[in-house]
Amino acid sequence: MATIIVEVMLKPEILDPQGQAVAAALPRLGFNFAQSVRQGKRFEIVVAGEPTHAQLAEVEQAAEKLLSNPVIETYVVKVEK
Protein backbone atom coordinates (compact mmCIF):
# COMPACT_ATOMS: atom_id res chain seq x y z
CA MET A 1 0.00 0.00 0.00
CA ALA A 2 1.31 3.43 -0.89
CA THR A 3 -0.05 6.92 -0.76
CA ILE A 4 0.09 9.23 -3.74
CA ILE A 5 0.10 12.87 -2.68
CA VAL A 6 -1.21 15.63 -4.89
CA GLU A 7 -0.50 19.15 -3.66
CA VAL A 8 -2.39 22.00 -5.28
CA MET A 9 -1.39 25.66 -4.88
CA LEU A 10 -2.73 28.87 -6.33
CA LYS A 11 -0.30 30.26 -8.92
CA PRO A 12 1.98 32.90 -7.41
CA GLU A 13 0.35 35.70 -9.41
CA ILE A 14 -3.16 34.80 -8.16
CA LEU A 15 -4.34 36.67 -5.08
CA ASP A 16 -4.77 34.34 -2.07
CA PRO A 17 -7.12 36.08 0.40
CA GLN A 18 -7.20 33.02 2.69
CA GLY A 19 -3.41 32.95 2.98
CA GLN A 20 -3.40 36.71 3.62
CA ALA A 21 -5.97 36.28 6.41
CA VAL A 22 -3.81 33.60 8.04
CA ALA A 23 -0.72 35.81 7.68
CA ALA A 24 -2.59 38.64 9.39
CA ALA A 25 -3.79 36.38 12.24
CA LEU A 26 -0.37 34.98 13.13
CA PRO A 27 1.07 38.19 14.69
CA ARG A 28 -2.10 38.58 16.76
CA LEU A 29 -1.09 35.31 18.48
CA GLY A 30 2.48 36.47 18.96
CA PHE A 31 3.90 34.55 15.99
CA ASN A 32 6.07 36.99 14.10
CA PHE A 33 7.99 34.66 11.80
CA ALA A 34 5.86 34.90 8.63
CA GLN A 35 6.67 37.25 5.78
CA SER A 36 3.72 35.86 3.84
CA VAL A 37 1.47 32.80 3.79
CA ARG A 38 -0.08 30.95 0.83
CA GLN A 39 -2.72 28.30 1.46
CA GLY A 40 -3.22 25.22 -0.71
CA LYS A 41 -4.82 21.78 -0.82
CA ARG A 42 -3.35 18.32 -0.25
CA PHE A 43 -4.94 15.10 -1.56
CA GLU A 44 -3.86 11.73 -0.12
CA ILE A 45 -4.72 8.93 -2.54
CA VAL A 46 -4.17 5.40 -1.24
CA VAL A 47 -3.40 2.70 -3.83
CA ALA A 48 -2.78 -1.04 -3.45
CA GLY A 49 0.89 -1.97 -3.78
CA GLU A 50 3.57 0.15 -5.34
CA PRO A 51 2.18 2.78 -7.70
CA THR A 52 2.98 1.94 -11.32
CA HIS A 53 4.09 4.44 -13.93
CA ALA A 54 0.69 4.03 -15.59
CA GLN A 55 -1.08 4.80 -12.32
CA LEU A 56 1.03 7.88 -11.74
CA ALA A 57 0.31 9.06 -15.27
CA GLU A 58 -3.41 8.65 -14.53
CA VAL A 59 -3.06 10.61 -11.29
CA GLU A 60 -1.34 13.37 -13.29
CA GLN A 61 -4.32 13.41 -15.65
CA ALA A 62 -6.76 13.55 -12.74
CA ALA A 63 -4.76 16.37 -11.14
CA GLU A 64 -4.89 18.31 -14.41
CA LYS A 65 -8.55 17.62 -15.09
CA LEU A 66 -10.26 17.59 -11.68
CA LEU A 67 -8.03 18.13 -8.64
CA SER A 68 -6.63 21.44 -9.88
CA ASN A 69 -7.85 24.21 -12.13
CA PRO A 70 -4.86 24.93 -14.41
CA VAL A 71 -6.17 28.47 -15.02
CA ILE A 72 -5.36 29.49 -11.45
CA GLU A 73 -3.52 26.58 -9.82
CA THR A 74 -0.43 24.38 -10.12
CA TYR A 75 -0.02 20.85 -8.76
CA VAL A 76 2.73 18.47 -7.70
CA VAL A 77 2.38 14.65 -7.58
CA LYS A 78 4.52 12.73 -5.07
CA VAL A 79 4.59 9.19 -3.67
CA GLU A 80 4.73 8.57 0.09
CA LYS A 81 5.63 5.15 1.44
Binding site: P17, Q18, V71
Partner: peptide
Protein backbone atom coordinates in the same frame (compact mmCIF):
# COMPACT_ATOMS: atom_id res chain seq x y z
CA UNK B 1 -18.90 27.61 -17.20
CA UNK B 2 -15.32 28.62 -16.33
CA UNK B 3 -14.59 25.14 -14.93
CA UNK B 4 -16.01 23.72 -18.19
CA UNK B 5 -13.65 25.99 -20.16
CA UNK B 6 -16.63 27.40 -22.06
CA UNK B 7 -15.59 30.75 -20.59
CA UNK B 8 -12.04 31.86 -19.74
CA UNK B 9 -10.68 32.86 -16.33
CA UNK B 10 -11.74 31.68 -12.89
CA UNK B 11 -13.71 32.90 -9.88
CA UNK B 12 -11.89 32.85 -6.56
CA UNK B 13 -12.61 33.83 -2.95
CA UNK B 14 -13.74 37.44 -2.52
CA UNK B 15 -10.89 39.81 -1.69
CA UNK B 16 -12.04 40.46 1.90
CA UNK B 17 -13.25 36.84 2.42
Amino acid sequence: LTESHLLPGALIRNQDL
